[in-house]
Amino acid sequence: MNYDNEMQIKFKSVSENEALARTCAAAFILPLNPTVSDLNDVKTAVCEAVTNAVIHGYENMTGFIEMRIKTADRTVYIEIEDKGAGIDDIKKAMTALYTSKPEEERSGMGFTVMETFMDSIEVISEKGKGTTVKMSKKIS
């Protein structure tokens, strides 16, 4: 596929970088003149995926998270990849309200938010190797 534009950034898995990632994603799609609502949807979905990588992917260690974004024909394709713990049971992890950390006041809504705010989502994960979340959304 021929993309109109592409970018990638790699950053440390610290919570400060959740804001960095969503702000970068928003700035990257700004030339498409997205509506405030589309812009917010993308920012929120990116933030959820990066937060998952920080909290669950790398849990008690620090690693790097890579975010790749491409645009083609007013559709934005986003990949967020960590080399962390991986997910045991993807289906369970994606269930609304499920959280592996109930003691930490996590809402268990991260994947549900990504599913609702984006057009498509795919999760690729291998135990001990890491997780990649692929999402896309048509910008109206």
Binding site: R22, K43, E48, T51, E105, R106, S107, M109, G110
Partner: peptide, 13 residues
């Protein structure tokens, strides 16, 4: 100006 599901968890708490 922005809130994600972490904010939901905080409000529920």
């Amino acid at each position: 100006s922005f809130m994600d599901s972490s904010g939901i968890g905080m409000l529920i708490g």
